[in-house]
């Protein structure tokens, strides 16, 4: 039976549509800068299947979408970082280079394969000071966005990003940044996820050797109780400057289309 003709434009559009829907089905993940580094927050009830991971000394990884697909990316990133760090020096492993490796892989799969990867990822690198912090967001088609201060991926990322901007303040301490991230991840009127429902990690520039640290158990409980919502309606602080990546004139490529999950179902 002959295949009906489909134009290349149509094929690409269908692929993008398919990937977008898959990514929007899960819950959002928030990556945000704070005073001592970068905070990564993901609603994730699983203790074993991580959405957030360490890649190298200064580099962290966050992902949404299909677990097996972003797990492959994560492992490749660790291999890339470790081979380069071993071959040259630990200082020579950068988030920028890693983001480029991911971008070329995602782009190649998007054009060559029958199905794009249903993932959206963030590669974050903590620097000596806040000015050197880097947050790169990568989408299923291999586009790279150099984000300023914060990034939201997956789920209803637009709505979450809007809520995050309302509360986020540049140079906020960890507790305040976590509070902002949790308010953003909670729908208006919804209940905040508890410590057991959260995967939280930081890239703390004050740590020795490896900057990545998972926050869990009593330590996270303590932070969460510090970050209690005071008055959810009124933002405590000045809204942050609008960033270039999100909320710009052109819509981000992950804008959810059609019927999507509202974030109230269990994540992927």
């Amino acid at each position: 039976m002959p295949f009906p003709y489909a134009s290349p434009e149509q094929i690409m559009r269908d692929r993008a549509e398919y990937a977008r829907k898959g990514i929007a089905r899960g819950r959002s993940v928030v990556v945000v800068q704070y005073a001592d580094g970068i905070l990564l927050v993901a609603p994730n009830p699983s203790k074993a299947l991580h959405k957030i991971s360490e890649i190298y000394d200064r580099i962290g990884f966050a992902a949404v979408g299909r677990y097996n697909e972003f797990e492959t990316l994560r492992q490749a990133g660790i291999r890339y970082a470790d081979v380069n760090g071993y071959n040259y020096n630990r200082k020579d492993v950068t988030a920028r280079a890693l983001a480029n490796v991911y971008a070329s892989q995602l782009g190649m799969i998007f054009t060559d394969s029958i199905k794009a990867l249903e993932v959206e990822i963030v590669v974050a690198e903590v620097g000596e000071g806040p000015e050197q912090d880097q947050i790169y967001r990568l989408t299923f088609d291999g586009s790279v966005f150099d984000e300023q201060g914060m990034a939201v991926i997956g789920g209803q990322s637009d709505a979450v990003a809007t809520r995050l901007k309302e509360r986020y303040r540049v140079g906020a301490p960890l507790g305040e940044a976590l509070d902002a991230a949790l308010s953003a991840l909670t729908e208006p009127g919804g209940e905040r996820p508890s410590a057991g429902q959260l995967e939280v990690a930081v890239l703390d520039r004050n740590r020795e050797h490896r900057k990545f640290l998972r926050l869990s158990g009593p330590r996270l409980e303590r932070l969460l109780s510090e970050a209690k919502p005071s008055t959810p309606e009124s933002p405590l602080t000045e809204p942050a400057e609008p960033t270039t990546g999100e909320g710009g004139p052109k819509p981000p490529p992950t804008a959810p289309d059609g019927d999507i999950d509202t974030g109230s179902e269990p994540p992927l």
Binding site: A76, V83, Y86, Q105
Partner: peptide, 21 residues
């Protein structure tokens, strides 16, 4: 990089694909 080597060993990976290191 994206090949599943079936092992969590760095040395195994490097031996497979960059033995000169």
């Amino acid at each position: 990089l994206f090949t599943n080597t079936g092992s969590s060993s760095f040395t195994e990976f490097v031996r497979g694909y960059a033995p000169e290191m």
